[in-house]
Amino acid sequence: MMSCKMATKFVFLLTFLFLVLVFELGSARLTSGVIPALPKEEVSALNAVMDSKSYNYCNDTELMHENLFVVCNCSYEKNTVCHVTKISILNADLNIATINGEVGKLKFLESITIKGTKLSGSIPNDLGNLSALKYLVLSRNSLNGSIPESLGQLRALEVLDLYNNFLTGSIPSSLANLFSLESLDLSYNLLSGQIPQALGNLSNLRGMYLFQNNLSGNIPPELGSLSRLDTLFTGKLPENYANLTSRRLVVQ
């Protein structure tokens, strides 16, 4: 037979477990009733990037009708907080004049595509703050100025596409720090100077497109060690390229 003292302890334990269960269920109901939201600083940054248009960025279907896509991950803090992971703007009619430096506050961004728009001005240094960024595509716009050295901080970057703009200056040697880079397209710009030797460190590079610029000098021999590279260059090929038969070379 269970003693009275033991029975009292058993009842107390059951009561405690019951209260814990009620609390957990109540918390789950409260959490499930919360609509995931973007932090205010990300909303402010998006409003600046999107020319101050006020959208419900993570849930607004109007964006897709304008070829303007914003993708969010809303799994943070038990599905109550969202963060922007992708921005894609493909509509030439959108009035996005420049890339605002506020974009550097979108710390969870993995992909930016602004392609074939009326985008002008320079590329902001703040893009170098986006440590999670894997894809940066700003092709077929009217960007000018130089390529920021800060882009060399984007260690997760796999694709850098600045094709067909009006970019000037030299190719930053800091791009040699992009060890995850697989594709580099700087073609159809106004870049000058020599191709940095340090780009020979980009062992994952598969495509490098630098034609239709004002580059000078020969292709650095260091690039001959990039066995995965499918290259399009301007200039005279170094001798060590002759041993790399697994690639397609186009010299213009």
Rank of each mutant, 00 (worst) to 15 (best):
88 S>W: 06
203 S>R: 13
232 L>I: 09
10 F>C: 12
22 V>W: 09
171 I>S: 00
173 S>E: 13
95 N>C: 07
90 L>K: 10
118 K>T: 11
222 E>W: 02
166 F>N: 14
63 L>T: 08
219 I>K: 00
174 S>H: 02
239 E>V: 12
223 L>W: 02
19 L>E: 09
141 N>Y: 00
180 S>K: 03
166 F>K: 15
6 M>N: 14
22 V>S: 07
21 L>C: 15
188 Y>R: 13
189 N>L: 04
23 F>Q: 14
150 S>C: 04
41 E>R: 00
154 L>T: 03
25 L>T: 12
121 G>V: 06
207 G>A: 15
152 G>S: 06
183 S>C: 04
139 S>K: 02
227 S>G: 08
177 N>K: 13
67 N>Y: 12
47 N>S: 02
60 D>A: 07
117 T>Q: 04
124 P>H: 05
7 A>R: 15
123 I>Y: 04
80 T>L: 03
222 E>K: 08
137 V>T: 11
217 G>Y: 07
150 S>I: 03
131 S>W: 07
121 G>S: 09
168 T>I: 12
33 G>Y: 08
165 N>I: 07
249 L>W: 12
205 L>Y: 03
163 Y>I: 09
25 L>W: 12
198 A>H: 05
237 L>V: 08
183 S>D: 05
91 N>P: 01
236 K>N: 11
48 A>H: 04
185 D>Y: 01
228 R>Y: 11
80 T>G: 04
93 D>Q: 14
189 N>P: 05
109 L>R: 01
237 L>D: 09
49 V>K: 02
94 L>M: 15
201 N>L: 02
